[in-house]
Design a protein around this nucleic acid. Sequence first.
RNA 1: GCGCGGUUAGCUCAGUGGUAGAGCGACUGAUUGACGUUCAGUAGGUCGAAGGUUCGAUCCCUUCACCGCGCACCA
Length: 858
Amino acid sequence: MAQKELAKAYNPTEAEERIYKLWEESGFFNPDNLPDAKKREPFTIIMPPPNANAPLHVGHALFLTIEDILIRFNRMQGRRALWLPGSDHAGFETQVVFEKKLEKEGRSRFKMERKELYKEIWDFVQNNKHISEQGIKRMGSSCDWSRNTFTLDPAIIEIVYETFEQMYKDGLVYRGQRISNWCIKHQTSLSDLETKYEERSEPLYYLKYGPFTIATARPETKFGDKYVVMHPEDKRYTQYKHGDKIEVEWINGKITATIIKDEAIDQEFGTGVMTITPWHDPIDFEIAQRHGLDKEQIIDKLGRLLPVAGEFQDMKIKEARPLIVEKLKTKSLLEKVDEDYKHNVQLCYKCNSVIEPQIIPQWFVAMTKSLKDGRPSLRDMALQATENNEVKIIPERFEKVYTHWMQNLRDWAISRQIAWGIPFPVWYCNVERANMPRIHFADFTVEQVLNGKTKTYRLKNKGHNISDKVRLVNKTTQEVFGYATITNVEIKKIKDIDLSDKAHYSTYKNLDELLVAFKRHYPPDQKIDGETESYIYDYAFEALSPENTKDGCGQIIISGEAPKKCPVCKNKNLTQDPDTFDTWFSSGQWPYATLMAQGKKDFETYYPTQVMETGWDILFFWVARMIMFGIYKTGQKPFSTVFLHGIVRDKDRQKMSKSKGNVVDPLGVIDTYGTDALRFALIFSTSAGTDIPLSEDKVKGMKHFANKVWNIARFVLTNLEKSKNKKQKTKLQPKTENDKKILEQLEQTIKEVTNNLENFRLHEAAQSIYQFTWRDFADVYIEASKKQLSNSMELDSGKSSAAKTSAELRENTQRILLYCLQNILKLLHPFMPFVTEEIWQQMENEQLLMVETWPRLR
RNA sequence: GCGCGGUUAGCUCAGUGGUAGAGCGACUGAUUGACGUUCAGUAGGUCGAAGGUUCGAUCCCUUCACCGCGCACCA
């Protein structure tokens, strides 16, 4: 046999790059190139697209390992195994990272043009995307790079738009003036999932509100409270009827309060009475909705108090609260204070700022609304899929978690006020968002000229005086401030952007108020120079030129491309919705979108997919939504099995995080111990869905195992007859007890590994092959074979026949050794692809081990 | 408040209705060899507590304790 002598020890760094290239060049990562591809049964895994911007971390290493094992196993079993890779633009996540970078450079996204910001992030991500893909390759991932997809690929965006339009027609997405979780730092709304709660201890104030006592932890929101709510069955308050009006002395003077009876009130809590702030509290909002009550904004989007707060206007919550409490005290409205009141505060999951609920017009997905064609709601379709086992979740216990979450689902807010994402394909026929030529102001100056007794105002930009009536628009948020004219002041402010509802317009009486609004939103550098008081705004503004101030009809047009004019009123001034989609709106469509993006044939061949493998931490974010979208859009479940893995932790069970400094860099580990060692360590001795502690010792141990396999091969190959044809046609005959035993053990191992892999018990499969290879084969059989290979072995019979027997035995032993080795390499290949393929190649096999057939029972 | 998971060797974790397993670590010995070592062996666990079902429980049921987590809510 023309074996090359194997090196003394396995050198992963030398082999891995070469082997990966060999696989890649074979073309077999693309299942359509596999032998007899068309006869094969498809087996598809869509890779959860990693954040294109993030370098490979150990969590990626884990899921890449698991999915690659499943893919390689199925490929060897003769299936048409497609593993489709991709990456995610990860809207909010990435923008947050980028904003930090800007901050370091002394810049701010709020001072940038949206397009410019998008472009910069695009370039930033493209650079990192390449790095992340290199990492995936180094893990040995046998995914089909020819189908690599990015969530911002034009084909994907087109499908996302199509889905959105379809849902719009089906009434499943709607634009609503609803309360949202608003992050003051990031200036965007967030879904319920993107916030977290933290228990804090804060004073609870008991305030006198006419004849009632109400409790609040947030006195700064209470200025506009004019409804007092109690339970309809509360016996203490039977003398008050729903709708009664009473006069009460409140923070800034007398107001008229209205009695509201609502069952949402907990009679046990405090006095059983509360006042409501619908603009800034979800529960209050719902009560107001139920009874059709007024809603008033008290706090602006930057967390400052509005004019309703009187003397506290423009103050931030933190500074205003103690002053307000002080005022309440002097007015004798403060009854008592519970200093150590514990409650949960809702925070932004990224920056930990307190979430300020705000009413913002946004797009929502209706989760519980049945379809017009009689199909159940998105939620119910998805629930049915798991109930009747069309979609199976492993481990099973997560099915309960999933069901519970689904049953308590609220509508999903999908608008994000950030640049990095897929823009809404929505156009408003409305002048306030008109997109026509504008006068641009980079640095915008409002001058208040004191000229004797009269005041005049000038809007200045780089020396230009603007004398026309102009409309002031903040370019970043597209917020309209109003009209401004120098001599004839006519200023409108639009509080929120539901432009179809004229009731939400508010008007500034004069430029003074406009200035106040500016100052509140954008603290200026104030400069007083002689008689001229200038406020210089270092923010980008645009002013619409007068010819574009004609009102539109309010029509909403769904279109990916800018429509030329409004189909209803022919108005040409259409504005695109300034928001972008929640990332999960696009990644939720990933299974069918990726396949559709390859063309109809791919979708027909590979959809529905077999396995969705991902972390349990994104079960709600992602898996639930994929099931809903998939069934809605294609009428079929997107996958039949959801396989959930745990979180990789450090050896002390600590969650890895940059701040703790315990982050394991998988590429560093690979450099030291090799990819196979890392892969095996990640799945060895850990069951599905439980968290995985990873220690260096474990990886080290698995490196030893890779090396052991190498040396087993070395032993077997060097002990073969030089001229021996390695092809074995005749059946193996066990001649000794050892022979018999090892072949039985091998059969058993094949059974176990196959069965365990089929049932997603990867760790048990790994342990089984480990045990067989090292203990049964290396320690026992190989040791025994040394005697069987020896010519001088003594046998009972006569001399010549003894020689013959001994030669026969030797030959048979060689065959068994080789047979076992071949099977070990095959069984181990999904787990340790590099070392096994490397040995296979050294054995001068014609075919790649990657596409060899999986061991069968004899 | 509702729910979930865990508690097994010094450490990290598998596992099973019938004398308890792995990796790492510890200890003893062997080994010039296929093996950047490896092998043989030793020590070490009333499988969180109590009760129940069973011929038999670490495993199934109930209760409890401790640790961890998810969801919801707090005027």
